[in-house]
């Protein structure tokens, strides 16, 4: 196993990536899809508004990109800290 200070740095970097990812997760679904929908009625997406489309389809695409981006960044981080399998 890597030494203590290196593994602390690894964990801190991981938590930082998770926090940013969850902020995007929240904004895409609860933000644009629910809370901000009434304010964004002006932006239309094919017969309805942006909030409607985010809630029915858009947020799911964001989730997909988020997970794969997280997996890729973590693979890179694992290698940088020498903790990959």
């Amino acid at each position: 196993m890597a030494d203590k200070s290196s593994s602390n740095a690894y964990w801190k970097a991981n938590v930082r990536i998770i926090t940013i990812s969850l902020a995007i997760w929240f904004v895409a679904s609860f933000g644009l899809g629910i809370i901000l929908r009434p304010m964004l009625k002006g932006i239309s997406v094919g017969g309805a508004d942006l909030g409607f489309w985010m809630a029915q389809n858009g947020s799911i695409y964001v989730f997909l990109v988020l997970i794969f981006a997280y997996a890729a960044r973590m693979n890179k981080l694992d290698r940088e800290h020498g903790v990959e399998e």
Binding site: S29, I60, F63
Partner: peptide, 24 residues
């Protein structure tokens, strides 16, 4: 139909939590 989007977001957004917070 909009209000029921809770199912669409809820039943997919959980996988983000799984991937980031639990599964690995």
């Amino acid at each position: 139909g909009y209000e029921q989007s809770a199912f669409l977001m809820g039943w997919t957004g959980g996988y983000v939590l799984l991937a980031l917070l639990l599964a690995p």
